[in-house]
Design a binder for these strands. Structure first.
Lengths: 249, 249
DNA sequence: TAAATTAATGAAATAATATGCTAAAAGAAG
DNA sequence: CTTCTTTTAGCATATTATTTCATTAATTTA
């Protein structure tokens, strides 16, 4: 039996039984436990399984939680949220993407504001239920657990049918040449739709995202109306953005 | 049994029963109490449980507004949830309505269960994001803030397109003559759709809802497959329900 | 407070792992 | 085809992880 073949069988067995024992595999695949251990260690190094004393288990799908990210860069995010909230006017229809910066924004929307907010983020929707007058429309679909947002075709098609005044978007990265970019293909697609559906596009991002480029393009810089960061708007880093017509806050 | 596997079982059992005794676990898992104690100490060090003299408890969670209601009748609700969880099988498609009893159920679904759950309740969806293998589909629509669920035509039409094996439903009231009834018209309509979309209908309710009648009818008793309450299933109050073919748990 | 239960500790047993070494098999180069 | 190298698997042994047991300390309960 080939080594690869054996490792595939091991992976299949883990998927099936949610655990494997080195001793069992040794008998079943007719090789020594040493070999099995070597296989398990290799698979574990590739992150495909979790090696434990006596055998192996599937990898924990539980990714680093949204909760954890919620508290990083809190000061910067709050700074951005404060600038963003001034753009919200009564009667507007707004789309919010699922970033933690947007969550911060959702927290500080003044209670006398009366608007309609579309979102596909569970934490943001939940936060907005505390607001007395905002109408919330949640965009349904398959849930992405670590990000706690809905994704997929349902989301894309729902957003395509909207007409909004503003959209507030977090981003994976932004620079002048590549515009907005995202590490996740599905998210990049959804954000394209959000931009199409909105009169004005407002990008919220912490300074560490500026001049970062991620894998999937979302939109050229020209479609972005306003960029809000924690930096001072007069910072020279923004000069090329301003030349492209982006307003900086 | 692998150490990690054992610790997972302990976590599941704590979720389910809200407490475990070292002595019980020792017998159940066929290891010494020393080992159990070491497991509990390790899990406690990771902050996953709270170790106490003689056993362990779940970690205390904070309790704001919606959360407060969640803890009223907690014992009864957990009792119901424990009975309900036994009905969930791998591979099923399940619809869950937005009651706090259902939230309790969402909390205790064992981590090795693999199913697809449709829901229109924010807290339930959020709770399920903690589960490693369940696929969650959120049904979008306009948010009802106090209940933290989506309502309206979008929800109705989404549910109409589903085919599910089970639906778990809370209820405003149930009796033999009027069947299930709801105080809210929109909710009654949504629940009708859920029943149409599901192979089996399982109603979860605390004893105070039995023989209550609310304003809007949802379904005659005949369409309900199983009724789960905190009472003993042999209680004479259930005799007329049983005569109508409802299974009592 | 005394009795009973539970916890902590260290020694000992058992099982699993890592490591170095050997040998066979498969490829590569001449 | 031969020789050399590389990969792979098995074995012996040292090391480490895990569990149990005996003993003593701490905590709860009556």
């Amino acid at each position: 039996m080939l080594k690869e073949e054996r490792q595939h069988l091991i992976l299949d067995k883990i998927k099936l039984n949610r655990k494997v024992l080195s001793a069992d595999l040794s008998i079943e695949l007719q090789v020594s436990e040493d070999t099995i251990r070597r296989d398990l260690n290799e698979l574990s190094a590739k992150g495909l399984i979790k090696k434990v004393h006596g055998g192996a288990l599937p990898v924990d799908t539980k990714a680093p939680s949204y909760e954890e990210r919620k508290f990083s860069n809190l000061k910067e995010k709050n700074n951005i949220a404060k600038k963003a909230v001034s753009l919200i006017k009564n009667g507007q229809v707004i789309i919010m993407s699922g970033s933690t910066t947007n969550l911060q924004l959702a927290k500080i929307i003044p209670s006398d504001i009366n608007a309609t907010i579309y979102t596909y983020s569970l934490p943001i929707a939940l936060q907005l239920t505390e607001h007395p007058s905002i109408e919330i429309i949640f965009i349904g679909g398959k849930l992405n657990k670590p990000a706690q947002v809905t994704v997929g075709l349902d989301v894309v098609s729902s957003i395509s049918q909207l007409r909004a005044d503003l959209c507030f978007m977090g981003t994976g990265g932004i620079n002048v040449e590549n515009g907005m970019t995202e590490p996740n293909w599905e998210v990049s697609h959804i954000k394209k739709c959000m931009i199409e559906a909105s009169e004005k596009v407002i990008v919220l991002c912490t300074n560490n995202k500026i001049n970062e480029v991620k894998r999937y393009p979302v939109t050229p810089i020209i479609k972005i109306n306003t960029l809000i960061t924690d930096l001072n708007s007069k910072n020279e880093i923004f000069i090329p953005f301003k030349e492209k017509g982006v307003k900086i806050l």
